[in-house]
């Protein structure tokens, strides 16, 4: 988080010093700040690991959009063809995420992926109750959820 703050600060400096206030110039300043931080991050402990975050974010974004398309298609096929292929059910999912923010983000993204929907969180915050639409192989669903969660944690941690 502190890395993002410094990056925004550098972008602001760039905009003020060049004196032209526009979105493009701001983005350019952000890019310059990012390059600067990427150059010095090995010597400043507070910035450690910040430069790896942006590519990870983009990788996650691409992965998520792809997942969205794929499972949307799966559900669409099941909706249009008359016999039901789905096997819905509620399963437990043990969380790796610890803090409230992480749990919120992870459950939001699980809910956004078609085919899975978070119904409840256990009171000790260790388990999500996920309603899955295609529960033919439970291990597969759980493995998909784990993959998604690990990718999210990789970005925000």
């Amino acid at each position: 988080m502190i890395g993002l703050f410094w990056n925004l600060l550098l972008a602001n400096c760039w905009v003020f010093l060049t004196g032209s206030f526009g979105v493009l110039n701001y983005l350019f300043g952000f890019l310059m700040g990012y390059v600067v931080i990427a150059l010095i991050h090995k010597r400043v402990p507070a910035l450690e690991g910040y430069p790896q975050r942006l590519p990870r974010f983009f990788r996650f974004f691409g992965f998520f959009v792809w997942e969205l398309l794929l499972s949307n298609y799966k559900i669409a096929v099941d909706i249009v063809t008359p016999p039901w292929h789905m096997q819905p059910g509620v399963i437990r999912y043990k969380l790796f995420a610890k803090t409230d923010l992480e749990i919120t983000l992870v459950s939001n993204f699980i809910s956004l992926t078609p085919g899975t929907l978070v119904l409840d969180v256990s009171e000790d915050k260790t388990t999500l109750f996920v309603h899955a639409m295609f529960l033919r192989k439970e291990e597969e669903v759980l493995a998909d959820l784990r993959n998604l969660e690990l990718r999210i944690l990789e970005v925000i941690r």
Partner: peptide, 12 residues
């Protein structure tokens, strides 16, 4: 739904 496979939340 009547064909719901399992329901862990009820157990919980």
């Amino acid at each position: 739904w009547s064909k719901t496979v399992r329901d862990d939340l009820k157990d919980y």
